[in-house]
Design a protein around this nucleic acid. Structure first.
Lengths: 186, 186, 186, 186
DNA sequence: CATGAATGAGGATTCATTCAT
DNA sequence: CATGAATGAATCCTCATTCAT
């Protein structure tokens, strides 16, 4: 039956992500992943044809996940200020609530043997549709997509990785939101 | 006694950096590094006590290097606009001219088993001294250091990683410079 | 799934013992053991978690084996003289017939990183039960267990290690038996 | 000057012995020995041509040493009972006072790649001269040298290795002395 | 005589993967 | 579908030894 298998594959995915947060990409061997997932190494090959295949598949899924999470925070009817606030805070919340997945994606996206598989573009197109709409209405300045992407996401990741105390984080995040509202809104 | 070969250690460092750009942290095994450097695997242990020790040492050096490179582009007497321009373009040029080192540092800084060793704070303090001076004079808005760091460096890294054609890159970079000048200058 | 090969594990054990007789504890590397056993080095780790684990396990088994061998030579209804004769000669025969195992145990028992694992006490308790019974009946003098153990086993090992010709050995062994009968029997 | 060199060689010897007590024959590598002795690995090759040569030389010296220690406890004019007492207690004291050397010799003497170098016979000849003299005078029973050696030394080593508390040891040692006096004296 | 860098063989162990069950 | 033993290449690292200084 499907139920058992689905659940086993989920355990494998979670194990990869958890292990890579703890020990880095180097530390994630098939046998460790299997142990962490409570399955046998050979079982992993039932679901994936190779380690590389497995990593890419999980990486792809996780990459998507962060932007799907983000989209749920965003409503069509938000004005530009609200939209920027939602993107920044939503993305940040994602990094906190899904620390493991975030760390996993961060590592994979910087590894030349894995990263080519997924491009951020594919994941963020929906968000850019929304931004483009506001640019057309003259609410958001007509910067290029590259520039928008550069100032919207990497700074949030930076704050997420370097966060210390809750208060600091809250203040820094608020400041970043205001900065980007000033910068992007006409 | 044979004298310690400074040049040999340099070759090892370059080999690490080159190999990690090509094959990622996973692919950088001691034997591959040795081969790339033209030394014997055992020789590496004359210069470093372990692989971890080696990676940290080279990571530390490379991290510093990027900011030393940056500082050379900056002059005390620049005004705020020039300073921002120099930081953005200087940092970007660094990523282009030292692609290998940049990729190496990017990967290490996201790997939980290596990154704790070096903090960006330690490397960028000189730049922040310059920014603080301008903030005091009222030339640069009084955002927190975290926010400044978040909008100054990660967006440049983003453009560096995602650059395609030369023209595009030039345009995007110019746009980013203007954005940050608008954002940061009173 | 392939069933765990009991016979393969036996081959590994024999290989360890044989190799250590020939080349000493120093010479018993995993790869040599594997070669001697006709298995692959990695296969050893299917049966043992580490070299240390393997050595202890085999050492423990071999230690027991010598005293089980001894017990088979001994009958409940023997009188004191017969018992001493049987212990001395039985133990000696063991060292001759299982030279490899004997040499292996001798080496392990003197190595500080292995020996703490097995105590002779655990192996000889049955023999001491028999001796205690004779002590109670007044057939054997009431020396302490330590003294009994000291004069019963180490001298036999000494003769076993230093034996030259068959005749000599036979004579020395007979002499030792008589000495201990005189010494221990009331 | 000879002084420096002599002292350095002494340090090497002590290091070997100390290290082998702690970590067994396996653990005594040239580099560890050098570190323990405070010299450089290459320096060891000034004094010995190879590791094997070094081990044999130190083993030979240490073997002799135990019996020289023993001889100092023995006086020509002792009667048979005193002689046996002196041998047993002298040898035991040696194992306690020179635990490191004793453990080193014990390990080497059981290792087939080292032991052939030294035979106990060579070291104990003086003691046997004394015993033979008493045998001629009819004070000590005319057992063969092999039997004498088998009951005189190995039991002491056994007690030395298996000693726990001071009281126990004292009692066991006294008992062993009395046993051997009864056994060997007419 | 002492040194310390260099070496290449070999150390123990883990790897990703396969295969028979 | 799941398993777990088997594999041979690869892992990091230490070994004894040599050599130029």
């Amino acid at each position: 039956m499907r139920t058992r298998d689905e659940e086993k594959q989920q355990r494998i995915k979670k194990a990869i992500v958890r292990l890579i947060l703890r020990e880095g990409i180097n530390g994630a061997s098939i046998s460790k992943i299997a142990q962490e997932a409570g399955v046998f190494p050979a079982t992993i090959y039932v679901y994936y044809t190779s380690k590389e295949d497995m990593l890419s598949a999980v990486y792809r899924e996780c990459s998507m996940q962060s932007y799907r999470f983000l989209m749920r925070r965003i409503a069509e009817e938000m004005d530009a200020a609200q939209l920027i606030d939602a993107i920044i805070r939503g993305y940040f919340e994602y990094t906190v609530e899904h620390e493991e997945v975030f760390s996993f994606v961060e590592q994979c996206s910087h590894c030349p043997t894995i990263s080519p598989i997924v491009s951020e573009k594919d994941c963020t197109c929906e968000i850019f549709d929304l931004l483009h709409a506001r640019q057309k209405k003259g609410e958001i300045r007509s910067y290029s997509d590259a520039s928008l992407a550069a100032v919207l996401f990497p700074p949030v990741r930076y704050l997420a990785v370097n966060r210390r105390t809750l208060e600091n984080t809250e203040r820094e995040l608020g400041e970043l939101v205001r900065m980007l509202q000033v910068l992007l809104i006409e």
